[in-house]
């Protein structure tokens, strides 16, 4: 079934998948699921010097039918305390929406998400209450993010 599926998969997706597997970006892994080659299991390590350091975050990524004309869909599966990620793991990131370009790739998307963990942006919030916490008392919000990392993202 996988071989039959691969025959139908656009060449671009095959190339991207091969490269993700053979030359993974540091701190990121992505592998397609067996029964759906457009659906990837992703792991991102919390960046050093961020409140997510030491955490292993699971995500899921799906390449819709019109990829690469449309962006991949990505969501966190691990609970995370971050002003740009909501309770369902949805991510507020411009390249996943209006700033998407077919020149971007799965790899660039995942690197951008990793960078978002290093640089939370409470001025463009998705989780309103988390963003407010971040603005009112950043030290305390960072402490909560660390506690959630220990509780939910411990390896």
């Amino acid at each position: 079934m996988a071989a039959n599926q691969a025959a139908q998969l656009p060449r671009r997706i095959i190339k991207e998948t091969q490269r993700l597997l053979t030359e993974p970006a540091p701190g990121i892994s992505a592998s397609p699921s067996e029964d759906n080659l457009r659906y990837f299991n992703v792991m991102i390590l919390g960046p050093t010097s961020s409140p997510y350091e030491g955490g292993v975050f699971k995500l899921e990524l799906f390449l819709p039918e019109d990829y690469p004309m449309a962006p991949p869909k990505v969501r966190f599966l691990t609970k995370i305390y971050h002003p740009n990620i909501d309770k369902l793991g949805r991510i507020c990131l411009d390249i996943l929406k209006d700033k998407w370009s077919p020149a971007l790739q799965i790899r660039t998307v995942l690197l951008s998400i990793q960078a978002l963990l290093s640089a939370p942006n409470p001025d463009d919030p998705l989780a309103e209450n988390v963003a407010k916490h971040w603005k009112d008392n950043e030290a305390e919000a960072v402490e909560t993010a660390r506690a959630w990392t220990r509780q939910f993202a411990a390896n």
Partner: peptide, 15 residues
């Protein structure tokens, strides 16, 4: 074979 939208993304669309 048509593209299969995985469960969670399908439910996010419905949401």
């Amino acid at each position: 074979m048509s593209v299969q939208v995985p469960r969670n993304f399908r439910l996010l669309e419905e949401l």
